[in-house]
């Protein structure tokens, strides 16, 4: 094997590290996207039995946005195995207990249940905020594009720009801004 071919071999089978910002993203739609990178489904050399999956670092998982009224309607079921051990946890309750759990479960359930699934999940690193350890962040070589662009909030904009932008209307005197 020539030097070039050897390097090509390394480059083909090396694990790539991707980073994904979950701010204001739908976790269930994001899970479909993250799954492709975790399992290596985006590579032309994909085969269910060749180990070509990549690592994905998900940051800001505390900032996910569930669609519609799913924060109060989506229920996570758990059973301890003992009689009367069933619990039903609402999505917002689960998210306050562990801000990583909804995304983790979304990715886990997005994949087919086989023996490989738990090993594939080991390559997913979720962080509730943007504080990623340096030894993980140093590996990252690709950023996964977000599904939706994050709109800029008025209270996060520069007050100078807001003041100078043309005003379309005035609120009525008795209008209460919530």
């Amino acid at each position: 094997m020539s030097v070039l071919k050897r390097v090509q071999q390394w480059a083909t089978f090396a694990r790539v590290w991707h980073i994904y910002d979950a701010t204001w993203q739908n976790p269930f739609a994001s899970a479909e996207l993250i799954k492709k990178y975790l399992m290596g489904l985006y590579k032309p050399i994909y085969h269910p039995m060749n180990d070509c999956g990549d690592h994905v670092i998900v940051i800001n998982s505390a900032e996910i946005a569930l669609p519609g009224d799913e924060w109060t309607k989506r229920v996570y079921f758990h059973h301890t195995g003992y009689p009367g051990g069933a619990t039903w946890t609402l999505a917002w309750e689960l998210h306050t207990k562990d801000p990583k759990m909804i995304l983790y479960k979304a990715v886990y359930r997005g994949m087919k249940g086989n023996l490989q699934r738990r090993h594939t999940m080991q390559r997913l690193h979720i962080f509730p905020d943007a504080n990623v350890p340096a030894h993980l962040l140093g590996n990252v070589s690709n950023q996964i594009k977000q599904l939706r662009p994050i709109p800029k909030r008025l209270d996060h904009m520069d007050p100078e720009v807001v003041k100078n932008s043309p005003k379309i209307f005035d609120y009525p005197k008795d209008y209460i801004v919530r």
């Binding site: 489904l41 985006y42 032309p44 050399i45 994909y46 269910p48």
Partner: peptide, 13 residues
């Protein structure tokens, strides 16, 4: 199925 998966991946690139 595998061929479709691979072509999908390669064409998406």
């Amino acid at each position: 199925d595998l061929w479709v998966t691979r072509i999908t991946a390669a064409s998406a690139q």
